[in-house]
Design a protein around this nucleic acid. Sequence first.
DNA 1: TTGTACGCGTTATCAG
DNA 2: CTGATAACGCGTACAA
Lengths: 341, 341
Amino acid sequence: MGTNTAPTLHDVARRAGVSTATVSRSLNLPDRVRPQTRARVELAVAELGYTPHFGGRALVSNRTNTVGAVIPTMENAIFARGLQAMQDEFTAGGVTMLVATSYYDAEREAEQIRTLLARGVDGLVLIGQARPDSTYQMLQARNIPFLLVWIYHSDSSYPCVGFDNRGAARAMAEQVLASGHRRVAMISGLTAGNDRAAERVAGVCDALAARDIPLEPPYLVEKPYTLDDGGEAAKTLLALDPRPTAIICGNDVQAAGALRGSREAGLAVPRDVSIVGFDDIDLAVAVEPALTTVRVPHRRMGRAAAKLLLQLIAKVQSPESIRFDTRIIQRGSLSAPPDGY
Amino acid sequence: MGTNTAPTLHDVARRAGVSTATVSRSLNLPDRVRPQTRARVELAVAELGYTPHFGGRALVSNRTNTVGAVIPTMENAIFARGLQAMQDEFTAGGVTMLVATSYYDAEREAEQIRTLLARGVDGLVLIGQARPDSTYQMLQARNIPFLLVWIYHSDSSYPCVGFDNRGAARAMAEQVLASGHRRVAMISGLTAGNDRAAERVAGVCDALAARDIPLEPPYLVEKPYTLDDGGEAAKTLLALDPRPTAIICGNDVQAAGALRGSREAGLAVPRDVSIVGFDDIDLAVAVEPALTTVRVPHRRMGRAAAKLLLQLIAKVQSPESIRFDTRIIQRGSLSAPPDGY
DNA sequence: TTGTACGCGTTATCAG
DNA sequence: CTGATAACGCGTACAA
């Protein structure tokens, strides 16, 4: 049972005894139709279980009420909160968000963007700024509104909604220095094609350079954002001579891994070595000791980004970047260095 | 700059000096067109940067190459891995996956399904089985292929791809009993509208009942799947007299919270109290001690679900459920109960 | 206020 | 192998 063919505007019109134009108006501009007529239409709609055909609508209106977001991966919790908030805001605005993943690969990102464009998204949200010119050219050729999130640059050529990764990392490093550390190492995310990661390294360097402390391999190591990689990297760092007294990590996942790695190396945190993270995801307080980290207002950022993109699409607003502040959350994983350092 | 209007089939046809039909064929059925002609078309496509208009295509073919997935929330890592794997598989098959969230609310889920249907998805993936009849009726009225995932019931009326939550929970509880525990408490997820949570409780009850051990409030408590709720629940349980020697949690997030709660209550895990989780997400090995938990093959499950749905849509396969096995991963958080119990 | 009629971009049928 | 041409479902001038 079940006729298998969805009812069309035409079916509704016939049933309500009006024209298709009237049905369309009843649905889209209800004020322009007599209440009595509208009631008949609505009844017919309900009886038939009519829903407008997406393709037909997209074809004629040239809008899809759809936006796309390309993130590196869903698996890392780093993006989950912000993305969910964005999604909620878009949903509230009646638009659907498509999520695609790039696995931190520029070529793949471009491909996903192409796919989203082919699907007629009305706007796009991208993470960070680092991507080939060709990608930006494609976006501009299409003349499609887009937003860069998770970063903020006052001088960016494109509107962004995010925070100053470099400044936040510098502040974190300064906090570590203020705790008395002088032998500082860093586990960074892979910086190739990831400007957030690169900026965090730069920020840490800024702070250390101000005290004439270098940050170079082998004390600076780049690893993927995983627990295991964080752990391995920490073990490597802690085997160095002289051993670092503090490890600054590119994010909380790496920091949690480093915590485990330190433990496996027989060192206590923060007694023997301090470890700090970045992002303040749930994981930061799940581990023991809890992580000193940089709190990023993921939810507010996601909502603001969605709102702005909706406005850009509606052309009620010109592109204007939004900057969020971060702050350091002091928890157990950072303390003064051990005596004698 | 930027003409602002995307090139159409017509534009390509003119440029290549052929008809629109030939362009369409070159793209969709390349063998049916002379290589030389095809080359001209492909050149024009490249020069113009043409991409087929999604709406036009959807209109005539009545397919969108889009599937929908409704999950409770993106924020909990429980779904991230499986969802990403599903997404990858769908992408490989040339279809786009739309992700919507229900926040564990049936009404909201129905609404999201309606939205997805209105967008013309070719198929649907839903989590679990518990939802109002009206929702199933809606799906059947539309005659749309759909799949239930994260569960498996041999007698389900609908095709499912997942595992036996009840059996897995029973096995976990038996493991706890085998370690010598007799005072067992449970922190469950909210069971209203969440059959996976309900089944896990049932499974634990099965195992305990076999030993004439009851599981009732206040030793059974329902809380949302959050770190904080897990911690609070654990503290409440550990204040009971007699105090439980083992706490079985509805998932790893709650278990990680319970771990923290126990520590805050001044108890050591597993020396004073054992704690076990469910799902084996990354978090399980980030905490100390690492969680004894139930490993669920999220990735394989996600991929299998995507594959099956694609086949259902293509009608090359009749609905047939797929069952995955789980297994218990023994780690540090479970040991024998303290002496005297 | 309502109806008629056209066109959006694509695919598919049918001739040639 | 290729080209007209007719749908597909909807929104919207324009006319009534």
